[in-house]
Each structure stands twice: as structure tokens, then as C-alpha cells.
Design a binder for these strands. Structure first.
Lengths: 231, 231
DNA sequence: TTACAGCCATGTTTTATAACACAAAAGTAG
DNA sequence: CTACTTTTGTGTTATAAAACATGGCTGTAA
């Protein structure tokens, strides 16, 4: 499940942050970072848990979500490789407020937060990196609040699809590069599963997408973006 | 409207950050910070504008909000003295995504972001301060997303009232220490003005609060918190 | 093979909330 | 003081979305 050797295979890809480090700092990371693999749907961390490590998704797809009222869960954001996550709670000196789980088999590099902050003390660029990430995350969260509360179902679902396209991209045949259960799509869009299914169907009848099981092929991306934008 | 002398009257209260600085850094701030006064309902910054200064609210009350679909605006967060704001966009290297306006006559200290980042380069504690603030803000935003989307009207309004109590406090007679138009209360709670008014009325009939114009007196705070929590 | 669980899909009913309409009250300007 | 705008309050109607119910499909396990 975890190993320190494996880090060498990936260390080139931790890029963004890696570039900001000197040799000594890189060495420190190499000695303290470790890899974990997660199965499909496996939990990565839970709400209420004490945050200890910075995580970087190397392979796979991860959802950050919250269990809301009456079992309904809300996907807050999604992570793609190579992306850092799980740092907010530690920086805020709080427990985790969210849960994280793997959409599909995923590989995560974990770095003890103590090591990260040790480096930050002497490396302004790493500080700057996290400040930027947090600021971007906060901007996205603010946008999302308004979109989820004010857009109608069609707009919210369209937005989620656009979001998935922008995050994970399209294959050559315009299939969205992630296969989500209808329930996940619903949780991403703040609606019931029934309504996600229904609304997908109307998108099909409007020739905006086609469906083949969980494969979503985008026919009219422009129209999709328009629906997403206008609510 | 602005003055550099006035900064001396307040510099003691910029506390949190002030404490983290050495004499030279404090001098730098004193020479570059300036004060602006804002009238009731006056805009402080607008969406799309280029962020240039860090702001610190010295006196008054400020709302950060977004204009959503169809003129409906959503209050994202509220600021109380002494609190820093307006830093997210600069750190993210974006334009402002939100608007800010004064609820009531307010005094703001502005510090050029260039000066702030200059200090941050050599002062890890100031970096840490902003990382912490951003992390706290992000946590609040995540919570808020779920609360606004999943709670019912009563829960959302109760939550707003609790939020106002926790932010601005109660006077000796249990009056919430801010006088908001029903419309602002609605925008804070993601509902129409009519429904804010209606729901306030039912809270009165349930002896949870009493109303006298815009004065809201809290009778049963526990019950209010319970409604807020249970949605 | 059958039985069963987990997704999909779709039709019907119910309900929360927005939208609308209209007064009354309060604040503001001339 | 009067006219006028803005805010507040309430009743009614319309509607978006949830809740519920049911059935089909697919894969899996006995």
C-alpha cells in the first residue's frame, strides 16, 4: 500500500513545487514523502480527522465532498493529477471539514506537513505557491456558492459537465474522460439522482450529448456552455 | 476621503499583523498605508476591478457579495473590525470576483499589495498569517456551500442570524448589533425578500425573536441555533 | 439456472419556494 | 405638510424540484 522507493518514479512530476526547491530541500522531501494507492471509491481522508500530510495526486481522480443534511453529500471539488490537496485544514489548524475519496484507482504522494512547513520557513516561493492555490480555491468556492444556489437544474448539470470537460478533458471521440455514477453527477450538481438522470435525458433529446452507460459524449459543447452560463 | 496622518491613530489596532513586524517593516507600512472612509452603502471595490491594496476594516461593517443571475445578489461573507480583506484576488493574480460595500459608515486602512508582498518575502510569519486566513475563509466557504444548498429556508435564515450574532455580537438587551434591510438578510440567506420577511414573522410568533423595525432582539438563542443546525 | 443487489430510467404526487399582486408604513425630498 | 419613493408585510398563484413508486437492465453469486 505504501512505499518510499516508489517516490523516485514520480519525483519528476511533483513539478510545480519541485522546481521551487534547492537540492537540500529536495533531499528532505525524498526522505519523508511516501506513496499510497487507493482503490476505486476508497476513502482517502474523513471529516473530523487530524490532518498530517500534504497530498499530491499522481494518478487517478479524486473527489472532495461533504456529507450534508440527511445523507445527501455534496461534491465540493475534484482533483486531477498532478494536483496538491488536503492542505487547507492543517494550515487553518483545524480538523478536516471535508471527506476525500478516489473516483477510480489512484496514486497519492504524501508529505508530512511538518516537513512542508519546515521548508516554507526558508522558502518564500513555496509559501507563495500555497497562498496562490488557496486563493484560487477560495475564488472557485465563491463562484460555486452562487452557481449552485442561483442556477436551475439544467444550468447546474451543464456546469458540472463543463467542469468535468475542463478538468479531465475529452477523448478523441468527444467522450468526457471520466465515468461517473449518476449519483456522483447529482452530488456534483446539487440535485437528486432522479433529476440528474432526467436532465441528462433531456440533454440527449436536445442533441447536446449522447449517452452509452456512463459514457457521456459531447455533441454540442457550445450549447452546453451556454446553458451552463445562463443558468 | 483619505489621509496618511490618520494611520497613526489606528496603527496600534492593526494588531495581529503589526505584532509580527520589526521596526523597519512597521516604518514601511506607516509610510505606505492610507485611510479611506466609506459612506453607508458605498461600494469599496467592484467585480472585475484590478486589486491593488490590502484592506483592513478599522471601523464599521462591510459585506462581500456577488451579483448573481437575474440581479439577485448573494452575500458571501461579512467583515468586522479589525479584519483584513480584499487579498484573495491579488494573491490569485486575478481581478476581483466579488463586490464589497459598506453596510454602514466605515473606515478602511489600505496598504499597497506590493508593500505587503515585499514584507512577506522576508517575514515568514506574515506569510503564515495569510495562509491561515485563506484557509479559514476556504473552510467557511465550503461549509457555506453545503448549508445554503441543503438547508431549508428556516434553517438558512436562522443560520444567518446566528452568523450575525457571532460576528457583531449582541447588545445588553440582546439586540443583534447590526441593522440590516430585509433584502440584505435575504441575500445573506439565499432567499427572496418576501420569504425573509415571512420567516422572520414566524420566528416572532414562535417567540424566538422580537422585531422593532430593523432591530432584531434574540429571545431564544438556543432554539435559533438548533434550527440553524438542523436545517 | 435462479435469486439478488445496484444502477438506470420514467411517471406521478407532493411540497418548498419563487413570483406576483397589492397594501400599509416609513423614510425622504420638495 | 404633501408628494413620492422605498421598505415592509401578507395573501395568492405558479412552478421547480424533491419524494415516492415502479420496472427494467446488468452483473454477480449461489
Amino acid at each position: 500500500m505504501q512505499g518510499k522507493e516508489e517516490i523516485y518514479n514520480y519525483s519528476g512530476s511533483l513539478n510545480e513545487v519541485w522546481r521551487l526547491l534547492n537540492d537540500q530541500e529536495r533531499m528532505l522531501l525524498r526522505h519523508n514523502a511516501f506513496i499510497q494507492h487507493f482503490k476505486k471509491n476508497q476513502q482517502i481522508y474523513c471529516e473530523g480527522e487530524e490532518p498530517k500530510e500534504l497530498m499530491c495526486l499522481l494518478k487517478g481522480k479524486v473527489k472532495i465532498y461533504k456529507e450534508g443534511i440527511g445523507g445527501r453529500s455534496q461534491i465540493i471539488r475534484i482533483i486531477k493529477p498532478i494536483q496538491y490537496f488536503a492542505y487547507r485544514a492543517y494550515f487553518a489548524r483545524e480538523k478536516y471539514l471535508t471527506d476525500a475519496a478516489a473516483f477510480e484507482p489512484s496514486t497519492v504522494c504524501l508529505i508530512p506537513m511538518k516537513v512542508v512547513t519546515e521548508i516554507m520557513k526558508h522558502n518564500y516561493n513555496v509559501c507563495k505557491f500555497f497562498i496562490r492555490q488557496l486563493s484560487l480555491d477560495l475564488g472557485i468556492a465563491d463562484e460555486r456558492t452562487v452557481n449552485l444556489t442561483q442556477k436551475h437544474i439544467r444550468g447546474r448539470l451543464a456546469e458540472s459537465l463543463v467542469f468535468l470537460i475542463d478538468s479531465y478533458g475529452l477523448e478523441e471521440d468527444n467522450t468526457i474522460n471520466i465515468y461517473l455514477a449518476r449519483e456522483d453527477l447529482a452530488n456534483l450538481s446539487n440535485m437528486t439522482t432522479s433529476n440528474a438522470i432526467r436532465t441528462l435525458s433531456t440533454f440527449v433529446s436536445e442533441k447536446i450529448i449522447t449517452l452509452d452507460g456512463r459514457k457521456i459524449k459531447v455533441i454540442d459543447e457550445e450549447k452546453l456552455r451556454k446553458i451552463s452560463k445562463l443558468g
